[in-house]
Design a protein around this nucleic acid. Structure first.
Lengths: 150, 150
DNA sequence: TCGATATCTTTGACATGTCAACGGTATGCT
DNA sequence: AGCATACCGTTGACATGTCAAAGATATCGA
């Protein structure tokens, strides 16, 4: 009916559909592989981003921007993670409106335990099945598309 | 800290990070482009899949499998869409446990109106920025990865 | 200094998605 | 026929994500 749009060529449609499937299936698999660690994919992202700072602390605004999350989303998720003891939030001494996010020992611990499994998952689900040059091409292509104006 | 995992080479890490960004950014953009039509991305998927059947009807089980959604997810989403008049659900005459999903006129109408905008969005956000061969390569690669066992 | 305005994080209401369990119905075996 | 079992779609509880608005604080200009 409308599925066989003639605004895309048959080839375009096929390739796009396949890519669209990857877009949904791959993240779902990576997320599922993480379940046994007790961390969700968003949890892992938060912990791993926080851990990149030497002091393991970050203000919400920059933190959200770095993660490309909305501040609201990060605040909500952080509230849940704080309740689980993975991170803490403290008032910013330099700006009373601000909030400093901090990785706890437990959070770091959880991340360290989950990381090898996650890396293995990325390999098994993706990297192992790409030719050397394919990954590089995929990286370049991804950057080009992702860097387009919003 | 843990970000600079040495389980991935520097190149692998960079390319994977770029691809991972595409994985989140592209669907978000396509979804946002759809907002003015009054349909969400999942709405669009449901309508477009339903429309592929000549009779525009489908039992939940096959429907969910075709969409690669869980039956629960589809049932929940369908309930919301039914409330908006986009689809209907009726008991299956051949199997009293079953349920037949049907596209309404309003649903078809909404899809027909949204489709050109969506196709344009896919072009602007992705297709227009790929070399001819790149799309084909991306399609093949996607299929290979997505077809891996779950 | 003081009022308008901007910025910060959080919150509430809601849409979306997952998981486990449910009631109802079909199926297969004796 | 009758019972155990499998399957159907739905539901409830909850995690996740979005949007708009809130309350608190900073900043800028008169």
């Amino acid at each position: 009916m409308v599925g066989d749009v003639d605004w895309l060529s048959e080839d375009e449609l096929r390739d796009w559909m396949q890519f669209r499937r990857l877009l949904t299936v791959l993240p779902a698999r990576l997320s599922r592989d993480l379940v046994p660690t007790g961390l969700s994919a968003p949890d892992y992202e938060v912990l791993s981003t926080l851990s990149e700072r030497e002091d393991r602390a970050w203000g919400l605004r920059d933190f959200a921007e770095k993660m490309q999350w909305s501040r609201s989303r990060l605040s909500h998720h952080a509230a849940r993670m704080e309740a689980r003891g993975l991170i803490t939030r403290a008032p910013d001494p330099d700006d009373a409106r601000g909030s400093i996010y901090h990785l706890t020992e437990a959070g770091l611990q959880a991340l360290v335990e989950a990381a090898p499994m996650h890396v293995d998952s990325v390999r098994r689900r993706l990297l192992d099945h790409l030719e050397p040059g394919e990954l590089a091409a995929l990286g370049r292509l991804s950057r080009r598309i992702a860097d387009l104006p919003d």
